[in-house]
Design a protein around this nucleic acid. Structure first.
Length: 800
DNA sequence: TTAGGTTTGG
């Protein structure tokens, strides 16, 4: 570090110089002597302007006056600074400052000007020399703990003007932060991203041995002031890091709250200018930084995966070596039952009576790994903010009747997304508000309820309980729609009774509740739809695929069809079976092989598990077999292309299979690149872009689309209407092509259906759905029937 | 030095 700022309070520097340094006075300086481990100290009497030398190197000249004037005739000396040392000193050093320089080279001056009459100068180079600049803070004792009489003038650099290598003072609104955590090194670490009116963002890596010296940030939108932050480059972006003398102040970001700095520093400057900066930043950030001011309560966790919870700690227990249980409450009631975590008898800390009293309002949070140490140190009764708490929706396992749909709360290991726990002080405004709210909760009312949260509780009782939905939730369900119209908002709502009287075709906007739906087993709703002949087909079962592939695997690859201009081929022989041969053809792009992630492969003789493994590594897998003339696709009983988790099938009726050489023309057009894939076809669903990019029609295949096909029975009080839903991905915002291979997506869908049609509740408590419905005529052998289908409607985002 | 925002095992 070439330049250090040293805070000097009442003449006492807060940082001592390294003990191996020895002071030398001006008069003892002699050419040819070694000044390693020596320092010279003085007062800055003249600072020249920063200039550049012929080769562009920054240059600064300072004249230093010896503090103790032993010999008046030689009491000044020139100091020449070069490079970023010169730039830093030009910014920091003022006339009258005390400075200490080390690592200098003593040389004779060639100049003969007035100030250079002593003929000696000190040369300071960035790599060898160090300057310590002392900033004076003089205090007087008064009734106030500390009163500043001399205030250093700080300048603050806008975040869009930060330069690599500089040490700056900045203000910003917190866009993101990780609460301090123990790093793998010696220090605590906190990552803080800030923004200011320049709209630039700066991510800062803050380290400190003392937890207290890191900024006391409680939520996004807080305002921070950092002094002596070093700016450096990392991966083509600038970042801020702590440096010697770093200090910070933090202010609440909420408009109108008092501007009181949070800091561990006993001494700091804070002027009316600072107050204005904070207030201006608050106004700027109010509309631009989504603050966590609208804090999420336990009653709001519907459809949410991660959130920051402000709560009071009621109980604590050790569960096992890697996790701790926290029992917390925020005065609101969950919209679903939640889990109760088991722990060993006698390990629960907290007031047993209070824990029992609040049992219907507390949630169990399991805290893991790196958060365990902090969790163990928490005192029952303190107020906490738990950041990025994972709320996991666990749908009922149908086979196990003892299990019911419930919520789990996990604070996973790691610090991603600022995951962590912070103790909030009692005077924090959110805590004050929470305390007021907790005091207003009618505990007797909640105690009268049955313990519906207990997972061992009988399933039918818990679902039929009216207490399941708080009055607040009920109101929301009745007023808002759980679906959103994506077009035609101008249409007026038509009652279902009126629709039933009309002829088809018509289009309607309706508002109704989902009385029931089919199929109940959601995986049965996924079908394959042919856009050409409009047939609907079942998705082949894996066991059927396996049979076809095993049969093909017994056929012999044709060696003549290997290593062509289109692809390179490799033969693999299995060891555990009857030496089955698998041939993998790596398709080239314009004659060149790509990295696996960009490569299309064709596989001959592979069974399901092998194809599945290969699909994880390669961009796409096409199962093929050898004919006499060319490689050909299977008979479309198996997927013609496997891309990640999506297995693409072709319509057996509409496809007219051609040889694989037809892929050739397309590959020559260089369309086998991620760029081409990304260009896509805007009218085509996302999952079909890839197969279009390899122009699968050149192989004579008509691809089938994955769709959800469901029947909804809707009721608006005036009548009931059976409507079809056929949707690729728009209604649920879940791709039908991926759901069969994704547990997460299946859980999401179950959760959505649970919200739309909550089991065990009266229909009055169901949410409203606003939908567009079109009617159409279907003629069967006997009569004409009017059918209805949902369109241009999607599930509201807060349910997804 | 550490971390370098970008969630999941429990």
């Amino acid at each position: 570090m070439p330049v250090h700022l040293v805070k000097e309070v009442n003449g006492v520097p807060e940082v001592q110089l390294p003990s191996y340094l020895e002071e030398v006075s001006f008069r003892t300086l002699q050419l040819g002597c070694d000044y390693t481990n020596k320092f010279i100290q003085g007062t800055v009497s003249v600072i020249y302007s920063l200039t550049q030398l012929g080769d562009g190197t920054a240059f600064l000249k300072i004249i230093m006056q010896e503090r103790e004037k032993f010999h008046p005739e030689i009491n000044t000396i020139n100091i020449l600074f070069f490079g970023n040392l010169a730039e830093e000193c030009a910014r920091i050093v003022h006339q009258g400052d005390t400075i200490v320089v080390t690592g200098f080279v003593l040389e004779e001056t060639s100049s003969s000007s007035e100030h250079d009459k002593n003929c000696l100068q000190l040369k300071m180079s960035p790599n060898e020399s160090t300057a310590y600049v002392y900033v004076k803070y003089d205090t007087v004792i008064s009734e106030e703990p500390v009163c500043l009489t001399v205030t250093p003038k700080y300048t603050y650099t806008p975040l869009n003007q930060l330069k690599h290598g500089s040490i700056v003072n900045v203000y910003g609104a917190v866009k993101f932060f990780k609460p301090p955590y123990q790093s793998r090194g010696t220090d605590y670490c906190s990552v803080v991203s800030i923004m200011d009116q320049s709209n630039a963002k700066l991510t800062c890596m803050l380290f400190s041995v003392n937890l207290e010296t890191l900024p006391l940030i409680y939520k996004i939108g807080d305002i921070v002031r950092f002094h002596r932050l070093k700016i450096q480059q990392y991966k083509n972006e600038i970042q801020g890091v702590t440096t010697v003398g770093f200090s910070s102040l933090t202010f609440e970001g909420t408009l109108g709250t008092s501007v009181i700095p949070r800091t561990s520093s006993k001494i700091y400057t804070f002027t009316t200018d600072d107050q204005k900066i904070v207030e201006a930043l608050r106004i700027w950030a109010a509309n631009r930084i989504s603050s966590s001011g609208a804090l999420i309560k336990l009653s709001d966790v519907k459809g949410i995966k991660y959130f920051d919870l402000t709560c009071e700690l009621v109980g604590k227990a050790k569960v096992d070596g890697s996790s701790v249980l926290l029992k917390v409450w925020d005065g609101t009631k969950l919209p679903f039952p939640s889990w109760k975590v088991l722990f060993e008898d006698g390990t629960l800390e907290g007031d047993a009576d209070r824990i029992t009293q609040l049992q219907n309002l507390t949630v169990d949070i399991l805290v893991y790994d790196n958060h365990v140490a902090l969790a163990k140190s928490l005192k029952v009764g303190t107020f906490l903010r738990i950041y990025s708490l994972h709320v996991k929706f666990q749908p009922a396992a149908a086979k196990e009747l003892s299990d019911i749909t419930h919520l789990e709360f996990h604070l996973h290991g790691g610090t991603s997304y600022g995951r962590g726990i912070k103790v909030l002080p009692e005077n924090n405004s959110d805590v004050e508000e929470l305390k007021r709210f907790l005091n207003s909760v009618d505990l007797a009312e909640h105690q009268q309820l049955k313990n519906i949260c207990n997972l061992e509780y009988n399933i039918s009782n818990s679902f039929s309980s009216q207490d399941f939905v708080s009055p607040c939730d009920l109101e929301r369900c009745q007023q808002l729609s759980a679906t959103v119209l994506t077009d035609h908002q101008y249409l007026e709502t038509t009652p279902l009774s009126a629709i039933l009287k009309h002829d088809a075709p018509q289009q309607y906007r309706i508002r109704a509740k989902l009385r029931s739906y089919e199929p109940q087993k959601l995986y049965q709703s996924v079908k394959l739809h042919c856009p050409k002949c409009h047939s609907l087909q079942e998705v082949p079962h894996e066991s059927d695929l396996e049979l076809v592939l095993q049969e093909v695997a017994t056929e012999h690859p044709n060696p003549k069809l290997q290593n062509t201009s289109l692809y390179n081929s490799e033969i693999f022989t299995t060891q555990n079976q009857r030496e089955r041969k698998i041939v993998v053809h790596f398709v080239k792009n314009d004659g060149i092989l790509q990295i696996p992630g960009d490569t299309l492969i064709m596989i001959e003789g592979g069974i399901l598990s092998e194809i599945y493994q290969l699909s994880k590594k390669f961009k796409g897998v096409i199962p093929v077999k050898s004919s006499q003339e060319d490689l050909i696709i299977h008979d479309l009983s198996v997927p013609f292309l496997i891309q990640g988790k999506t297995w693409h099938y072709g319509c057996k009726q509409c496809s007219k299979l051609k040889s694989m050489q037809n892929l050739n023309s397309l590959v020559k057009e260089a369309s086998w690149t991620p760029v081409c894939i990304a260009q896509g076809f805007s009218a085509v669903p996302k999952n079909a872009r890839f197969i279009n990019s390899i122009n699968i029609r050149s192989l004579g295949i008509v691809p089938l689309q994955y769709v959800f096909v469901m029947t909804f029975t809707l009721d608006d009080g005036t009548g009931t209407l059976k409507v079809y839903l056929m949707d690729c991905e728009n209604f649920f915002q879940i791709p039908a092509s991926e759901i069969l291979n994704s547990d997460d997506l299946q859980k999401n869908m179950e959760m959505i259906m649970y919200m739309l049609c909550p089991p065990g509740k009266k229909i009055g408590e169901y949410p409203w759905l606003e939908c567009f419905v079109k009617s159409y005529n279907v003629r069967n052998k006997v009569e004409q029937e009017i059918c209805y289908r949902i369109f241009d409607t999607m599930v509201a985002e807060d349910l997804i």
